[in-house]
């Protein structure tokens, strides 16, 4: 296999190497957004910053919650809480593909020993009103990342297309470490396994997501978040409004996991979140274009 000593042999080493790599590419290394989201794309550093003309480079780890994917810690490949590594570069650089492949080299996957492929995958987020074109990145038949050129966000065609890269960190680490059960991942290279950190959480949150979450309360909170978002948008407070949009989206995911949303309702919930996202994106963009803000940002 690959030359010894070059592989990221722990979960945290993988993250540190990616931070180092993308930091060198001029990315702002951000911390996770402090709210429950379904994917790294929801972080305002991606959703909102992908709009407008200003250049932007950022990378961060984002804990992602997918309530319906919980398996009580019994499935070796599925988690209701996992980590995405997210990179956004605007405008998309000429050498995006080459950079990405270098990032895989940096964690110890050599493209001369492995079979790297870019397989068509059109990305779409109905709740964010966003879509882009790109690929799944395959390594030896396994998806090790998702590569997207953003075309539209919040229902708005982007002024400048961004390059977005999302790595599923657990899956990637499992491949790099040669482990077949996520809970066996070496977390820190010093005896702590992924399961030691997260197995109990997977069990308890699965029970919460599927059995105990109070659906009437969730539905109420959804309506609250929706109302609050709308009233903040009237004040043109794009970022706080967007927090409420994120909240609504997660509440919808919880309701969905509890199986209380019918097919027809599902479409209407998605449309409601999308309307919030659209409002937030428009408000953000309007704020970017006000003269005061533009001057303040001049460098």
């Amino acid at each position: 296999m690959d030359a010894p000593g070059t592989r990221a042999d722990s979960f945290q080493d993988l993250i540190l190497r990616l931070h180092q790599f993308w930091g060198r590419q001029g990315c702002v290394i951000l911390q996770p957004y402090d709210m429950e989201v379904g994917a790294g794309t929801f972080h305002p550093a991606t959703t909102l910053r992908s709009l407008g003309r200003r250049a932007w480079r950022a990378a961060y780890v984002q804990p992602s919650r997918r309530p319906s994917d919980g398996r009580y810690g019994e499935n070796p490949n599925r988690l209701q809480h996992y980590y995405q590594y997210q990179v956004i570069i605007k405008p998309s650089p000429e050498d995006a593909q080459a950079l990405l492949l270098d990032s895989y080299r940096a964690i110890g996957l050599d493209p001369l020993l492995h079979d790297f492929r870019f397989v068509e995958d059109d990305w779409e987020s109905p709740t964010l009103g966003a879509w882009g074109l790109g690929w799944e990145v395959w390594c030896d038949g396994m998806e090790v990342g998702q590569f997207t050129y953003f075309q539209q966000v919040g229902g708005i065609p982007v002024a400048v297309p961004s390059f977005e890269m999302t790595y599923g960190l657990e899956r990637l680490a499992m491949y790099v470490q040669g482990v077949e059960n996520v809970f066996d991942l070496d977390f820190n290279g010093a005896g702590v396994r992924y399961g030691d950190v997260f197995l109990r959480a997977e069990r308890e949150y699965s029970a919460h997501n599927f059995e105990h979450a109070d659906t009437a309360m969730l539905a109420r909170h959804f309506a609250d978040a929706e109302r609050e978002c709308a009233s903040l948008l009237r004040e043109r407070l794009a970022l706080p409004a967007y927090d409420q949009c994120i909240k609504a989206s997660h509440l919808f995911n919880l309701l969905d996991a509890r199986g209380v949303i019918s097919v027809a309702e599902r479409a209407s919930y998605i449309a409601r979140v999308r309307a919030l996202a659209k409002g937030c994106c428009e408000a953000w963009l309007a704020g970017e274009e006000t003269p005061a803000h533009a001057t303040a940002l001049k460098d």
Binding site: M1, P76, L112, H114, D115, F116, D140, Y175
Partner: peptide, 25 residues
């Protein structure tokens, strides 16, 4: 595969077998 690998494809075969195990699981 899309490549003649240095190791004759051993890593590629092992990787693909592993992926298929996860799929079949």
């Amino acid at each position: 595969a899309n490549i003649e690998a240095r190791d004759g494809g051993a890593a590629i075969v092992a990787g693909n077998e592993r992926v298929l195990r996860a799929r079949f699981a």
